[in-house]
Design a protein around this nucleic acid. Sequence first.
DNA 1: GCCAAAAATGTGTTCGAACACATTAAATAA
DNA 2: TTATTTAATGTGTTCGAACACATTTTTGGC
Lengths: 346, 346
Amino acid sequence: MIKEKYTIKDIAQMAGVSKGTVDRVLHNRGKVSKIAFEKVDKVLKEIDYRPNPIARNLKRNKIYRIDALLPDPKLDPYWIPVNEGVIEAANEFASFGILVTKHFYNPNNRISFSEQSQKIVASKPDALLTAPIYRKESQALLKSCCEHHIMSAIINNLLDSMDRHLFIGQDLNQSGRVAASLMDKLIDRNDHIAIIHINREPHMKVKESGFKDYFMARPDSKLTITSKKFNSTEKKGFATDVSQFLENNPKISAFFVTNSKAHMLVEALLELNKKDAIIIGYDLLAENITFLREGKINFLIHQKPKRQAYLSVSHLAEHFLFGKPFPPQEFLPIDIITTENVHYYL
Amino acid sequence: MIKEKYTIKDIAQMAGVSKGTVDRVLHNRGKVSKIAFEKVDKVLKEIDYRPNPIARNLKRNKIYRIDALLPDPKLDPYWIPVNEGVIEAANEFASFGILVTKHFYNPNNRISFSEQSQKIVASKPDALLTAPIYRKESQALLKSCCEHHIMSAIINNLLDSMDRHLFIGQDLNQSGRVAASLMDKLIDRNDHIAIIHINREPHMKVKESGFKDYFMARPDSKLTITSKKFNSTEKKGFATDVSQFLENNPKISAFFVTNSKAHMLVEALLELNKKDAIIIGYDLLAENITFLREGKINFLIHQKPKRQAYLSVSHLAEHFLFGKPFPPQEFLPIDIITTENVHYYL
DNA sequence: GCCAAAAATGTGTTCGAACACATTAAATAA
DNA sequence: TTATTTAATGTGTTCGAACACATTTTTGGC
């Protein structure tokens, strides 16, 4: 295998035919005689020809449309970095003819998700990127995409029965286990642990399972783990609820918050004058980082929302532009964040 | 700003000139009258023209050469993933006309580094990628690159007085601090800590500083931290040395190993029947992972050698191909690895 | 006002792949 | 055998930027 760049013209010359014939062989377009085919095929087998993706792309000269359907970052700050990741990738690939359009839905309103879904499918983009908060609606959307031959990519959380869609995110069960193993290093034998869901979304149950599984696997474990779901979105009601919960469970001193809202719990605990609680939460929101740096949150797990979004868009783009293959599921590492390394993740 | 793709031809038409004139304006090639310049300039200011990088690249049609000068992975397994990262990126960009050549040097022999250096510079590649283990020799190499207009990228460890070279790696001082903060969570008040250098390379001192700084910053800290350097490369001599060291410092129960050789220490400790020592080390070598999973290493810090290499090559490639800018220094996150999340980093 | 030199502007070709179209060779029917 | 369809093959153009080259316009000198 000689290291050189071969062109169609080269191959044609080597095989003693014209570039048109080589082209027909390469693309199985027929209208090639056996003799000609074999001459070309022989050369192709010798040289490991790889078409120049740049020339190919220039010729195609197509504008690829990727539509992103995401929760409105104004309504939940968790989605701000996701939005940034999409924008970054969009800018990077804009001059390559990749056109990214963003659509926001209200994360507290399934109807808004469905409405936007239909609009997007109707506009027939080349690919769709979404965070499937609502299971049923999301599955309907993905099915619809399949039917209309729209590529689909998913971030944040996996849906069950979901093959052949690009997924980029974390293994949420394992993420719960990581949280548990960190908790394990921090607590004493007689600590009681609470798993706190604040405005629970379905996939957070998976984190809870992982967390519990870790401790269940240890035969010596006699820990008490209580799971609690808080629904209040207003601060006041939430603080009262927390107070109530702690009165009923006075022994609890360690908390695992299953989403980005650990800072809310910290604030509530501070109001109740309950200090030195052990807290593990998710995501690098400004409030969380502040508490992490102050030692009021012990560990954060980084779900890399920005990277999820960036990677999805760039995988799709590079697939369209250069035919790059990508794995159907890409599980990102579960990053453990402390005061000391948080800086490098921002 | 209308969202459309403009070509030079479009601009020429809009400005009422020929594409040649537009080209001269875009590239400041002179030979343009004031009137023509202003006509073109006006259009350019209106439309935010970005040249099609694909077409540009096709026209250039140049083969870019990147030479990588790295320690032989056969002589130190730490460099295996670095090698993999280079290969992966090389394959990815091969069809774009990026030609990556690897050169290995003996990490225990500065002469072999110098010799290879000279060969590479003499062959005048477009860029050089290296891991600068030897300070003086590396600085000479980088200077030489500058003079010959060879781009240079560096991974693994930073050299001082090193501007305008692409660096991709971790902040080693901070990495020591991360190790310390993890140690802090694991130890008791009266534990004694040892910092262990096995076959020390100069930059490992930086990790030690970071580690010590963390504990110094705490006014309440009365910890004893001993630093020890082991030089033996053979197992037998090493175990004896460790034994000796422990006899002299019987109170030491926690170890921070500043490179990928934590597994050697674990083995030595096992031979001495010293169990439940606390150990924090670096890098996901197979041996380290085994001990991590068995609970004999508490934390590993992942230096992402593969990613460092991959990123360097792809940054250089994308710079050459598409004119992508890159930051002079890119500090990668300092990943904390436990039994629970190690799987996702492999 | 005319010619030569210089400046300004326009035209044409290239890169490699893709595909439309033109041309030639082989196969079939009259 | 000749006309005519069909198969096989070759040629030419396009994508957008870059640059070589050709052409036109302007300027200065007499």
